[in-house]
Nucleic acid binder design. Sequence first.
DNA 1: TGAGCGTATTATGTATACATTGTGAGGATG
DNA 2: CATCCTCACAATGTATACATAATACGCTCA
Lengths: 222, 222
Amino acid sequence: MRASDRAYATLLEEIQLGALAPGTVVGEAAQAERIGVSRTPMREAIGRLVADGLITQLSPRVLAVSGFDADDIRDLFAARRALEEASARLAARRGDRASFAALAAAFSAARPETGEASADAYYALIQRFDAEVDAAADNAYLTQALRTIRTHLVRARRLARDHPDRLRASVAEHALIADAIASGDAELAAHATHVHLHHALAAILDSIDHQADRSASQKGTA
Amino acid sequence: MRASDRAYATLLEEIQLGALAPGTVVGEAAQAERIGVSRTPMREAIGRLVADGLITQLSPRVLAVSGFDADDIRDLFAARRALEEASARLAARRGDRASFAALAAAFSAARPETGEASADAYYALIQRFDAEVDAAADNAYLTQALRTIRTHLVRARRLARDHPDRLRASVAEHALIADAIASGDAELAAHATHVHLHHALAAILDSIDHQADRSASQKGTA
DNA sequence: TGAGCGTATTATGTATACATTGTGAGGATG
DNA sequence: CATCCTCACAATGTATACATAATACGCTCA
């Protein structure tokens, strides 16, 4: 593996998980020494993260981890909705019906609320679903744009916490989208995607609000 | 200006204008010497172009200018439609009505078919319109995705040729979108954008077909 | 004669030294 | 006392030398 890839993967994960908090200043030399690569590959890694939007240029000379708040999440979902609705439509028109029927069945069988292992399996299933939609839509420009969106989405998911009710609903929503694509119903696929993202966004914002409440009351009792 | 920016700008323009034809192998050392920078900034420039999708990795060791054909243009417009419809909707909801009313008036007054100078002025007006829609939509994720799309769009425009009839129609389409945004009609703004992009795509594909015909007949008579 | 392997070549990947420039601290001046 | 200018420092930007690995060529063997 190339040193620049290692540096990129390391910083990406740290930013996505919040280990590198928003606002943290990212210096080439400092990060290079910390990760154990020289400045050249670190420079390349930072450049990619800037292109992704995870690192922002504050002044001509100082880079920092980008901020990420509820407003960003709303904007992120607006862009995601546009792109995934388009993808779903295309997938419904061009996709292989059998594989989406199989995905629909897999979603219907999923029980992500029954433990951590099944939750992980469910997230893997969603990832497979996304990949198959991308492949079916067969549009490099959409896929590329969605790749960036998903990179940011990881940060949003980390701020929230999925509850059993939400997971059950998510299963049903995905099953409907997969069914719609399998039956070639582009409009239903797009609108079901819209509905799904609406609920997903609401759940994330709700979860963040509750956590804010909790930490506020913790402060109050401290 | 930084050497890496100069290298990026130079290569970008050459690819967009077709001076570097699709399929041309891009080697760090060769391009660095040609442009007159060292390998380090050239490497950074090439990395950015790869991220943009204008340069593709053919094998682990060889990079080449990406291909760009009619199918790419169709895919590009599918992604563009998704993003610009979403932007138009947001702009209609959040945008400043006065500035879009002014843009609508500017479009109504435009006469791009009356000469090269007025055509250039018209393209500048479209650029201003795009910038104001971006600002009104106020969504960094959409804007970023559109930036990439527009980078590719330059290549599509170069393959085509706008005719007076198309320019006149384009003026009217833009005026309608601006009007819709100015009046806060999100649905009309989105659908007018859809219509506009439909016609723009048709015109480009039509123009390419005719050029193909022409070059075919030229070959025949040669 | 063709296919497969080994080696030479040449490209990329990395490290580091050097150049350049933004930034901040300190002092001088109004 | 505040503000502006200057200078020093530290970071980024660039060039280049070195390490590494992929590719292509040629040789050998079947």
